[in-house]
């Protein structure tokens, strides 16, 4: 319904509160964060200003650039790991599981961990990978190794494993949807033409599922990029990620302007990625009707 003078009153009655709420408590905070990013700090106070010093510092000081590069690297590995684990699972659910009830049950069981405390799921890897944790004690008690190994915990591999574990459902969800929407007759047509199942997968199914890969990868990358719990729990001294840097700016380092600028960088990165993935998805979309 377009707004007319007659409908305006009821529209306003419904929408004024949500609009005011979102503007004041969501949009304005983001805007303020962005503007504080241009402020200066004269310890221990912050002064309104408009200068790019914080951004210059973020992109030139190796203290920050190393962490940004590391975070990009870890988020990339996490995304790759999630695709490698998530794709076969989604494929299996859609094409191998025959019974619809079993498929729904299995799909549900992939999503359920997503809503089970995120913190606890990160924490379990601490008790699994720790020096006297589950994995080590299992290896020792079965005689595979003589003494507990301390190679499992407090490194970047542990962080990647933990983050893949946490975010793999985000990858499976869109993949499941796109695979499930591929018309079966396309696959049958390919097989009728004598194309083997692998080439059918490679030439038909995989290209049609790219939209799901992009959507899942974007979500996984963005969330992994901004994580601060896994680095604290299972990352070691070389595990600091951008989010931990952010924590510090609002904690001990007490530099809100720099922290706000860094948060703005993360915000911009995520927005660019979301936009890019939307474009890619639109460009690659094939009309299946």
């Amino acid at each position: 319904m377009t707004l007319t003078r007659r409908t305006l009153a009821s529209f306003l009655a419904l929408f004024s509160l949500p609009l005011a709420w979102v503007l004041l408590l969501l949009v304005v905070p983001y805007a303020i964060m962005i503007s504080v990013g241009f402020w200066t700090r004269q310890f221990p106070l912050f002064h309104p200003d408009f200068q790019f010093g914080n951004y210059v510092q973020i992109f030139s000081d190796p203290q920050y650039t190393t962490v940004i590069v590391r975070t990009l690297k870890i988020a990339t590995f996490v995304t790759l790991g999630a695709v490698i684990l998530g794709y076969p699972l989604a494929y299996f659910l859609v094409f191998t599981v025959r019974s619809a009830a079993l498929r729904n049950l299995l799909y549900m069981s992939v999503i359920v961990p997503l809503w089970v405390s995120y913190l606890l799921r990160a924490y379990t890897w601490k008790i699994i990978l720790g020096t006297d944790g589950a994995l080590n004690s299992l290896l020792v008690s079965t005689g595979i190794v003589d003494a507990p190994l301390d190679i499992f915990l407090y490194n970047q591999t542990a962080m990647v494993i933990t983050l893949v574990y946490i975010f793999v459902p985000f990858m499976v969800m869109p993949l499941f949807t796109v695979l499930d929407n591929i018309p079966r007759r396309l696959i049958e047509a390919s097989e009728d033409l004598g194309v083997g199942p692998f080439m059918t997968f490679w030439k038909v199914i995989f290209p049609l599922s790219l939209g799901g890969v992009i959507a899942g990868a974007t979500m996984t990358f963005c969330l992994a990029f901004g994580d601060f719990v896994a680095p604290v729990l299972v990352g070691g001294p070389n595990g600091t990620m951008v989010a931990n840097l952010l924590q510090t700016q609002f904690g001990t380092a007490l530099n809100w302007p720099l922290g706000s600028a860094l948060a703005t960088v993360v915000l911009a990165l995520v927005l660019v990625l979301l936009q890019l993935s939307m474009r890619l998805d639109r460009a690659g979309r094939v009309d299946l009707a």
């Binding site: 609009l19 964060m33 969330l223 952010l246 706000s260 993360v266």
Partner: peptide, 27 residues
């Protein structure tokens, strides 16, 4: 725009939303 705005906190790392709100509440 409104729809995108309310969906933003769901795809943005929570820490950014947290920092934005902290800045605002302090102001």
């Amino acid at each position: 725009l409104f729809q995108n705005a309310i969906l933003l906190p769901l795809s943005l790392p929570g820490i950014v939303t947290g920092i934005a709100m902290l800045n605002f509440y302090k102001q």
